[in-house]
Simulated scan of single mutants.
Amino acid sequence: MTILVVIAKECLPGRVKTRLHPPLSLAQAAELAAASLDDTLRAVSALPATRRILAFDGVATPSAAAGFEILPQVDGGLDERLAAIFDHCDEPTVLIGMDTPQVSTALLEPVFTGWTDDIDAWFGFADDGGFWALALAEPDGDLIRGIPMSRDDTGARQLDRLRAAGLHVAFLPTLTDVDTIDDAHTVAGVAPDGTFAAALAAMLVPSGNGTTR
């Protein structure tokens, strides 16, 4: 009995993945973010979740979210938005972001098959110091609220908060969040058959004037 939540924002130019510009245009960065979200939603759709929720900041939901409940994000910082999601849930819940399109069913399967009574939380570090996955057996937004986000010590601080609350934490593999163009190349290399990798490759094809598309 596990709820799966993907948190995402609408992929509009200038609103997502702005650190990919340059070398990508803002429109290309938004297109790549949309591909990342699509790959993520497709990967987790096969997991045996009791509910699938897209915690969404935007208006037009992606077609890959068919079958997902749409939960509008609350106002406030990222910690407040994450906390509100967990406060909304009333059974074991795993939350992931939209920035790791290399995620697979196999990577998250332990949360659904290996969650024993002695595990209170699952945690997946991102290699930039943040985290890409957090699962709580007993969802409680106060375990996240107040954690400073988007820093190189965010993951460490979040883990400290969990352990300070007396939780026994199991770990998922560390993944690369796509923030920069180097990250994008790394992730495309890990998951070369995904929509993300195909979109990135198409964007980097040289045009007739020597620039990328």
Rank of each mutant, 00 (worst) to 15 (best):
V5E: 06
I7M: 14
I7S: 09
A8S: 12
P13H: 13
K17L: 15
R19P: 02
H21Y: 14
L24P: 05
S25E: 09
S25C: 10
A27E: 15
A27T: 15
A29I: 10
A30N: 10
A33V: 06
A35S: 14
S36G: 13
D38E: 14
L41Q: 08
S45R: 14
I53R: 02
D57R: 12
A65R: 06
F68H: 04
E69M: 03
V74K: 06
D75M: 11
L78P: 08
R81P: 09
A84C: 10
D87C: 02
C89S: 07
L95H: 02
L95T: 03
I96D: 01
G97I: 07
G97H: 11
A106F: 07
L107V: 14
L107P: 05
L108M: 07
E109K: 13
E109S: 15
F112Y: 02
G114Y: 07
W115I: 00
D120L: 00
F125T: 07
G129E: 02
G130P: 03
F131V: 01
F131W: 11
A133T: 00
A135Q: 01
L136R: 05
A137E: 00
R145G: 03
G146S: 07
P148E: 11
R151L: 11
D152L: 06
G155L: 07
R163A: 01
R163M: 04
V169D: 00
F171T: 08
H185Q: 11
V190K: 10
P192S: 05
D193C: 09
A198C: 12
L204I: 05
G208H: 15
N209C: 14
